[in-house]
Design a protein around this nucleic acid. Structure first.
Lengths: 114, 114
DNA sequence: CGGGATCCGTCTTGATACTG
DNA sequence: CAGTATCAAGACGGATCCCG
């Protein structure tokens, strides 16, 4: 969540935004698992905690990668969806997944993930 | 530097290894700028500090992504080079760079970077 | 001089408890 | 259900020290 830009390098800047252990997992859940609600993200096996999830969702929203909308007529039910810039992270997640599958033993794509 | 595996997901596992603001920048310096020495990494504009650099280099070595060798006949001069698994991160860095260039304003590839 | 290790103050993370 | 408050633990950064 660093907002200070360390250099003009696109790799450094992207890592400033997304270089942590959680942010891209939320994007993964949205992109490949179709998750949209706070509680759904909490259910992922990595076990993100509520304050981290809230702060990352807010940051993704501020970055314009995610949009938050009220869910139909439920009072406090929120819906998080990837924007087009958010969806454009797909090749990044794909490259990371491919590398992990090849280089890290015993990683695998769950059945419900594309 | 988390060694605890949160899930079998290749994205989560890769983020456990490389999901921080510094590790992939060292790989970038090796891969695109041909840097090989401690002092060269320190010179990058992002300004990594010596303790962080030392710990990340050690971790990359432990992961088998980097190899450390004595430099010719200089006594303590060390040489850090990417192994084949390390070099296989190229598509990941490429995808990150492409995304950053397109989505983050005022990022650019320095002239000396490919 | 090159390559770290160590200390220390600060900032960030994350687990848990709590709230509307 | 969807978060916020709290607070301990860890990561960062930078200065300095050390060692061949």
């Amino acid at each position: 969540m660093t907002l200070h830009r360390r250099s003009p390098c696109p790799i450094a800047c992207t890592l400033d935004l997304l270089g942590d252990r959680w942010t891209l997992l939320i994007v993964r859940d949205m992109m490949f698992l179709g998750k949209q609600r706070f509680e759904e993200f909490l259910e992922s096996p990595e076990g993100i905690s509520t304050n981290i999830l809230a702060s990352r969702l807010k940051f993704l929203e501020e970055m314009g990668l995610v949009e938050k909308q009220p869910y139909s007529n439920h009072p406090r039910r929120m819906n998080y969806q990837l924007t087009e810039p958010g969806k454009s992270l797909r090749p990044v997640l794909k490259a990371i997944a491919v590398w992990g599958l090849k280089q890290i033993p015993e990683t695998r794509i769950p059945d419900d993930e594309i």
